[in-house]
Design a protein around this nucleic acid. Structure first.
Lengths: 236, 236
DNA sequence: ACCTGAACACCGTTCAAGT
DNA sequence: ACCTGAACACCGTTCAAGT
């Protein structure tokens, strides 16, 4: 297209083609595909097609698919959870961290399963660290701190996994509210003898906000931590 | 081998071969393979080989792999979580349910990922129902009950997913304690400025029991529920 | 009804070969 | 060093054909 005359380009960018193939670019485009088509849509061949190269070339930058998914996960989550504001009270700081992870899991539904599957990868460890600093202000012993932080981490990541499962449900095309209406009606029609509780919360299912329910769970854990500190609620 | 004379067999068992191929048998053998080799080891071909049939035959009984995994999951979990003892206090009953799921996830590491991935399948819904009945004795409004039960379910299933991730870690062959020692040493050697908290709980990691940490998390949520009921701990 | 096995489309990964 | 593309082994699923 462009007529390329003899222009003295500054030698800052030694690119060899329009978009040089770097590991970052591979990961970025992989994230695009993941967001559009989910985990099953991401193949080395689809990735190669979009990057306009052979699929073998990609594997020079990332060894295998697991590494590719891991890198995409790390890039997103790390930038999502920043340092806590130094003046924030522990509860607020934990909210910030938890919701940071939650929102990013909501925006990239494939993230949930990925984070669940990676036990103590650097990304997970960093979230653990950030949560732990706040928990440390609320618990006395290291063991209590370890337990409480583990609980928060397990809950947060578990929520993401379930969010991902919901997003990838049978009819993903259907509207969320329409799906909740159908499910709520199903719950309401269950056998009262076997599903007395589920029936009783059918309306809550219909009107609930995933995010609000998520935060409510965080607050329950935090309240549990706090009640333990004050010595109240230990004998339930 | 056996000489088959004209024996009048009772016509109770119309079996056509030693082990007739039923859906239950397919699921049972699939579970065997899953326990031995994990999710990647379960293929229709491997299953067919062990069942001594063609791999197409299996697909007459179970339509696809998802259904196979779902059936295996349902069979195990349903039998693991029984009805709660009527005389148990809520906390004890929740422990029974939660530990029932945890132990079965621990025995079948592939279960975790499977339960995380199935959002509101009958199996999950049943655990939700059982948990909810106990929570209903501790919370007032349906919304609080819904939120609290969701939190417990998310935590329990999330824990199973992370357990599964740990079991499928790089060197699965290594002993658990050896792996914890290595990890603990790594945590202890982290940069004190970036990982002050993680460093401080390195010893807790080394000596912790997965099951105890799991229960501690359950108790935090329960304490949170209780503190909300008593109106204490709402302002953390 | 239940079972068989060939065939199809697709995948991750490897690797000899290029520049 | 970076990239190419053929080749390999393997998978889930389909389906015409048998009993």
């Amino acid at each position: 297209m462009c007529q390329d005359g003899h222009v003295d380009k500054p030698k800052t960018v030694p690119e060899r083609r329009a978009g040089a193939l770097t590991r970052d670019r591979v990961v970025a485009v992989a994230t695009e595909i993941l967001d559009e088509q989910g985990e099953t849509g991401l193949t080395f061949r689809a990735l190669a097609a979009r990057l306009q190269t052979g699929h073998g070339a990609i594997q020079w930058h990332v060894a295998n698919k697991g590494e590719l998914l891991g890198a995409a996960t790390a890039a997103i989550v790390t930038s999502a959870v920043g340092e806590a504001r130094p003046d924030a009270v522990p509860r607020q700081a934990v909210h910030d961290i938890a919701l940071g992870v939650f929102d990013v899991m909501d925006a990239h539904p494939w993230l949930g399963r990925q984070l669940v599957g990676s036990a103590w990868e650097p990304t997970t460890l960093w979230v653990f660290e950030l949560l732990g600093r706040q928990v440390a202000k609320m618990c006395t012993t290291p063991t209590d701190q370890f337990n409480a932080t583990s609980a928060l981490l397990t809950y947060i990541i578990g929520a993401g996994g379930r969010e991902a499962a919901n997003a990838g449900a049978p009819e993903a095309a259907r509207e969320r509210q329409e799906l909740l209406d159908t499910m709520s009606q199903f719950w309401g029609g269950l056998d009262p003898r076997r599903y007395e509780f589920t029936r009783s919360v059918a309306e809550s299912l219909r009107t609930h906000s995933d995010r609000a329910v998520f935060v409510a769970g965080i607050d329950l854990v935090l309240a549990g931590i706090n009640s333990k500190k004050t010595g109240i609620g230990t004998n339930i």
